[in-house]
Amino acid sequence: MTDLIDELPGEPMMWVLIVSELLVFGAGLAALSAMRLTDPAGFAEAQAHLDRAGAALNTVVLVTSGFLAVLAVRAAEAEREARKRACLAAAMALGVVFLVIKGQEYAAKSAQGIDWETHAFFTFYYLLTGFHAAHVVAGIVLLGLVAVLRDPRATETGAAFWHMVDLVWVLLFPVVYLIR
């Protein structure tokens, strides 16, 4: 039992959070997929208003940001503080890029008069992508925090949160943007 927990890379409490978050987003995505069956045409029509190219670009942005976060952990473990901070800053900057693209997407919806009550699909769309975007914001803050701390373990924990945000997005993307 204890050795199983020791086998887990990084902070076990962060894994508790990661699993909890995956459960929540997983349940949300499953609920969306199930509700889609009640009105496939309506969901497809609503989904057609989404910006697929922007979302696909955002996938590349996030996985690249995740890559930089791993580089930061390596730098922290090698006690190369300057390099660690540079990597984290770049990862955070890409997080901001993600939010800007996301913000444009929301603004475009708003300009079309779409909100979360327009259709059941949009309720899920705003809930899932909104929750996710909130985690991106939290992740940026967390990465900023661990950039200041001289503790490789903290960097690893912050990066793990960031990877969770990444993981959620790659699962969310096909369900929300592609499947119809």
Partner: peptide, 15 residues
């Protein structure tokens, strides 16, 4: 990272 970017582009292609 290279694999993730490739797969993401493939996903973009699917759209």
């Amino acid at each position: 990272w290279a694999a993730l970017v490739t797969l993401s582009l493939a996903g973009a292609g699917l759209s």
